[in-house]
């Protein structure tokens, strides 16, 4: 089983809808430890992304993802614009002109996206960021694949780990981003970036599951 370019378009549309639906929730999470704009900024970015999709609807997966990345960089601002923008750009570069993508290529795309986030954000696991949801998700996805689980099954296992990673940010002390200025008062709140990363992963799994 491989993921098609049409499914990638459907995935991006699903992300946009999910971010819009959860906009106020993301903003509430951000109000607790940041500056209350995470949901608003991502919704603004993905709303513009939606308008760019028709132009790339018949293109390869790399072109679709690069368009998403460029649009996010140009519209979101804050830290999440460069981070998610870089992630989609890197994934698009790895996938290139393919019309379908299997598990091995998906692992390469995920890992390159994560590397992009880490180098742009100068951050690593355990700092209460989106990385704490993304990295365990990729690890579980890889492990499942090498244990012989099929693409959808591996994605499902990755999503479970991603959700656990998101929840694991609650007791963490933030040491990166604006939440770090709260010191110990950042403890007890779920990271908004980890939450939006989970929503994106969930949209991918739901798209493939259909």
């Amino acid at each position: 089983m491989e993921i098609t370019a049409d499914q990638i378009i459907a995935f991006v549309e699903r992300v946009a809808a999910s971010i819009k639906a959860e906009r106020d929730y993301l903003t509430q999470l951000d109000a607790a430890i940041g500056d209350a704009d995470h949901g608003l900024n991502l919704d603004r970015g993905f709303s513009v992304v939606i308008t760019k999709l028709p132009a790339v609807a018949d293109k390869d997966i790399g072109s679709i993802l690069k368009t998403v990345g460029m649009t996010l960089v140009s519209t979101v601002g804050g830290a999440s614009g460069p981070l998610y923008g870089t992630a989609f750009l890197r994934a698009g570069m790895v996938i290139g002109d393919r019309q379908t993508i299997g598990t091995i290529n998906l692992i390469g795309a995920f890992e390159s996206a994560l590397e992009g986030i880490q180098s742009r954000g100068k951050s690593t696991r355990g700092e209460k960021t989106m990385i704490d949801a993304i990295a365990p998700g990729i690890e579980a996805f890889k492990a499942a694949h090498f244990n012989g689980v099929d693409l959808l099954g591996a994605l499902e296992q990755g999503l479970v780990a991603c959700e656990e990673g998101m929840q694991a940010t609650i007791p963490m002390l933030a040491t990166k981003g604006r939440a770090s200025y709260l010191g110990e008062r950042s403890i007890g709140h779920q990271d908004p970036g980890a939450t939006s990363a989970y929503l994106i992963a969930k949209a991918l799994v739901e798209t493939v599951r259909r």
Binding site: R44, V73, G77, G78
Partner: peptide, 11 residues
């Protein structure tokens, strides 16, 4: 100027 409390974008 970015949006309120949001940094400007690279372009």
């Amino acid at each position: 100027p970015g949006h309120i409390f949001t940094s400007p974008v690279p372009d």
